[in-house]
Design a binder for these strands. Sequence first.
DNA 1: CATTTAACGTTAAAATATTCACATTTTTCA
DNA 2: TGAAAAATGTGAATATTTTAACGTTAAATG
Lengths: 216, 216
Amino acid sequence: MTGADEERTPIPATVVRRLPKYLLLTQRLAKDGQEWISSAEIGEALGLTSSTVRQDLSHVDFYGISKRGYSVRGLAAALSETLGANREIAVVVVGAGNMGRALVQHKEFLRQGFKICGIFDSDPALAGESVGDLKVRLIRELTEVICGQDVEIGVIAVPAPAAQEVADRLIVSGVRGILNVTSAHVVAPRHVPVVDVRIVASLQELTYAIKVGGRR
Amino acid sequence: MTGADEERTPIPATVVRRLPKYLLLTQRLAKDGQEWISSAEIGEALGLTSSTVRQDLSHVDFYGISKRGYSVRGLAAALSETLGANREIAVVVVGAGNMGRALVQHKEFLRQGFKICGIFDSDPALAGESVGDLKVRLIRELTEVICGQDVEIGVIAVPAPAAQEVADRLIVSGVRGILNVTSAHVVAPRHVPVVDVRIVASLQELTYAIKVGGRR
DNA sequence: CATTTAACGTTAAAATATTCACATTTTTCA
DNA sequence: TGAAAAATGTGAATATTTTAACGTTAAATG
């Protein structure tokens, strides 16, 4: 599809984690009508040095120009392409508890191209219930939906003890990546990347930061 | 309260981010009745080298013993103390949309000592609605609740454009740390740490990982 | 049209993080 | 009781990440 696929070696994880921040910032500024932005301004907005910003952007196939900086729209487009997020991506959510339902209805997903096309639960009592404009289905139908609708990403939003089991099902069903919204550690084969959203762990990071206080 | 406060220099952020993983693992194993665990086993379970595990644990005031490893319960307790999470911590959630309500009812919070003692929204239409055993209150009552109940942490779960404004209110209300469940970048004074839970950004990390595929 | 300036891309230096390697300690067992 | 084994804590070596420095380029100015 895309012409040259760029990037011989993968972008370091630490950089990849910052790219969405740049993307979001430039998308917002583009909407506000701003045309150009410098690495210093990006750094300012995001709490990074301009040097880090320039290094990071050197991994993205897009060039700024002297004296002006980066074209806001151009940069946003390039970032989105680099991240592989410049297209609609089908997602399923497993777990129809509070968290699963909240995720399904989270507006920002669709805005960023993530289309949720199924929510599943193991509990038959929940099957058939409406969530947004989806109906909860039983986990056994997972494979069918994933194959049928070319789903790329599975989101795990079940109680921690069930996380690995759900991951296994997602994997055999052919999902290409997993977002784990559980505190459990999930194991998957190398070709199925797992990214964790660590809600409780983040609170614990915060308690540590509070404890050590100013000394940061 | 605690005798010696240990740790002269703050623990590196990269280590702090792993401590909750160790904590969760040891808590689970303790519940299963396991008594001892080695750094190699911890690494195995969490996808780290035993060396990283030992280095990390050297920041925690707890010692393993040769030939046995670490006492599971002892390590869990020490980690919890190091993180400052070995006590009940009062939390408020701002935003009574799907995400805010899901967070309030998230079981794991309480299990880890985070007690949610208020949910707020700017929308008067939501005020008074029940969420779990709380009632939604108006944001203007924030300060009162935070001061009155000694709330330490504020969780921001509103639409991104409102995030900074909410952060500002939390800060003037005397919150000591902020968990930002928004994709907005939030600015706060140095003495009020902010930790981000990046749900959409995590999906974008995932699309990149999927794109570069095996080459990781 | 030459000079100045702002900002880039990039190389190199400094700072951090991870891994290795091993001396030391505790336990086991012959 | 003494030798062997397993696992620790730690100092040193690697590897990675961040920051600084600077030559180069495009725009602005007189």
